[in-house]
Amino acid sequence: MASIKDVAKRANVSTATVSRVLRNAGNVTEETRQRVLEAIEALNYQPNVLGRYLRRMETETVLVVVPDITNPFFSKVLRGIEAVALEHGYQVLLGDTQNDVRLEEQYLNLLPQRQVDGMIFLTARIRKELVEEMARQFPIVLACEYLEGADIPTVSIDNISSARKATEHLIRLGHRRIAHLSGPMNIILSRDRLRGYQQALAQHELEADAALVQEGDFTYESGYNLTLKLLALEKPPTAIFAANDEMAIGAIKAVRHRGGRVPDDVAVVGFDDIQMASIFEPSLTTIAQPMFEIGQKAMELLLALIEGTSARRRQLVLPDRLVIRDSCGGERSEQRG
């Protein structure tokens, strides 16, 4: 196996110059850099990452923790994170908690062990006090979910206003009996989207029937099963606002299973605008989140923490938009919020 000395000898430079090229540290002419890179390729040299870590106490690796890797929402967020990470020479590792808070804590413990340089959490169900204590010592960023009142850099949308926007769209279409399929109530996003739904009903003086609010778990199956339950009510809803697109698609399938039509019998609105939302029939009206940008901004904040530069806006709230398609009737368009 080739060593850094072999590369230096072939390129006729010092080992320090090879190291500067590997670190993209500057102070190397373009001609010398190309010569070193050609030597690296010719010798198939693999840098000793462990040795570099031991010398610099840096891994040039970040960990992204997701609650459920099977949820398609996170794929675009991860792409945004990786695009910025690769641009700055960082590798991205992935940790899937499978909605288990204990796994969140286990991943968090990798920071004091110096196994990664920083972490981005796309889930925030861990104890607030624990995360805040760790964030005072190590680079941590929250994205998508957040911890209320915590002084931790965060990137998200305003879930309350966006849920209110989705519900108000159904109200403008003439619906008065609107159901809500929520996510798990131990997740702040679920509570925020429920709150936005409730605010829209209150502002339009519509009755908030507790039977029309059903708690799901963000899966297609829960959307399907809970909608069957709603349709069995003596006074079923004429519209459903689901807290994510997978549950909304499950709701549409349930309406069809019962012989109904979407949107003629029941209108459906989702949340997130995953790729399937525009492909599914009928195409899904939904709240579109800027998933790729959320990932980009989260990684930029994390890099600022790792490098010790100040992040002027530690709490970033990005814009969402209501994408109107076929599942609720009305004119197809986009409304920016």
Score class of each variant (00 low, 15 high):
R195F: 00
I171E: 10
A208C: 06
Y197G: 03
R191M: 14
A179Y: 08
H180Q: 05
I188K: 07
A179N: 07
G196N: 06
E168N: 14
R176Q: 15
A208F: 09
I178G: 09
R195H: 07
Q203V: 00
A208G: 01
H175V: 14
I171K: 09
A208Q: 05
H169D: 04
N186E: 12
R176C: 12
R164V: 01
E168T: 13
A208N: 11
L189T: 15
Q203Y: 00
S190V: 12
M185N: 04
K165W: 07
L206E: 06
R195C: 02
H204T: 03
I187C: 03
A200P: 05
M185H: 06
Y197I: 04
A200N: 02
A202E: 12
H204K: 08
I171Q: 12
R195N: 05
L173Y: 10
S190Q: 07
L189F: 07
P184I: 05
Q199I: 05
E205F: 01
L170I: 14
G196V: 00
E207D: 03
I178Q: 04
M185V: 07
E168D: 10
I178R: 07
T167C: 13
R172N: 15
Q198W: 00
S182K: 02
G196W: 01
E205Y: 02
E168P: 07
L170A: 13
E207Q: 13
E168H: 08
S190W: 11
R172C: 08
R195L: 09
S190Y: 11
L173A: 13
S182F: 09
E205R: 07
L173H: 11
E207N: 11
T167E: 05
E205C: 04
R193E: 01
L206D: 01
R164N: 06
R164M: 03
L181C: 14
G183F: 03
R176K: 15
G196R: 00
G183M: 10
G196L: 00
I187L: 09
Q199P: 00
G196A: 06
R195W: 00
R176E: 15
H204Q: 08
I178N: 04
M185T: 04
H180W: 06
